[in-house]
Design a protein around this nucleic acid. Sequence first.
DNA 1: ACATATATGATAATGATTATTAATGGAATA
DNA 2: TATTCCATTAATAATCATTATCATATATGT
Lengths: 144, 144
Amino acid sequence: MDIKEKLAKLVASLKKEGVRITPQRYAVIAFLLNTDSHPSAEEIYTGLLPQYPTLSLATVYKTLHLLKSEQEVLELEFSEMGNRYDGRKPWPHPHAICTRCRKIIDPPMLDTAAIIEEVSKETGFVITNHRLDFFGLCAECQKE
Amino acid sequence: MDIKEKLAKLVASLKKEGVRITPQRYAVIAFLLNTDSHPSAEEIYTGLLPQYPTLSLATVYKTLHLLKSEQEVLELEFSEMGNRYDGRKPWPHPHAICTRCRKIIDPPMLDTAAIIEEVSKETGFVITNHRLDFFGLCAECQKE
DNA sequence: ACATATATGATAATGATTATTAATGGAATA
DNA sequence: TATTCCATTAATAATCATTATCATATATGT
Ligand SMILES: [Mn+2]
Ligand SMILES: [Mn+2]
Ligand SMILES: [Zn+2]
Ligand SMILES: [Zn+2]
């Protein structure tokens, strides 16, 4: 399924939920589906500003919250570098984060289910969410 | 090695580094070693205030930074619930976090080395740090 | 086109953390 | 012991990403 199709399906599903699709919301959703860079709210805002000169950062935040409540975006909270968003895989999954260039990538899936099962057994917790972050230097930054 | 001994060793090691051990710093360090609750800066501050009525929150933050730079405390950044600190195991390790009562515990160690090795191979990253958080309901909160 | 509930954008507020700075106090020196 | 010296403290202000507020604009169903 390509991006266009995904976008159409997502918009249709949101409409069915009673969500109004405004140009601003459409633009934010499209932006999220067209990148794998895990952008910040600010990056989404400045990325869209040329085409939507009246867009407000508050609207970007509100749209991100809306998508989060619909489970259509994954929010990665970083107190240092600001929050980042993944609209392509809006479910919990591991991330590799370069501390030099701040690139964030999705490593091919580990067996997270097995890890969660083990933690659950050890702690007695019912695990409902997780956050697996691996920090270091990406291949490019190692050369510098 | 009990807490008292750990405290004495840590203080001695800091002194050797040229760090002055003030009453405020000693109190923060002792507080951190005497709990496994992963307290916030605010909790450390309010916990010590009765015995140190002139203590400033800024001093708590500065002491935490000092300890972090000496690798003697692990800082867990949470943008929602504020940062939390672990002075007993000041190296990266997994955590189970209750989303209801905000309790944070250390699950018995998974084989994190193996996981990191796998991510490193898959991504080409040199992994220098990690953050493995598992969110859910603790045993007590499940009963409610 | 109209009615109306919702969304937007400008702006102010929030709150945890960090920066600033004058006053304090411990240690080295005279 | 008195005197510098300089790191530390405490009070306070500043920061900055995110949220809240609210008057205006607009999407949607009729
Ligand atoms: Mn991702
Ligand atoms: Mn811990
Ligand atoms: Zn990099
Ligand atoms: Zn709990």
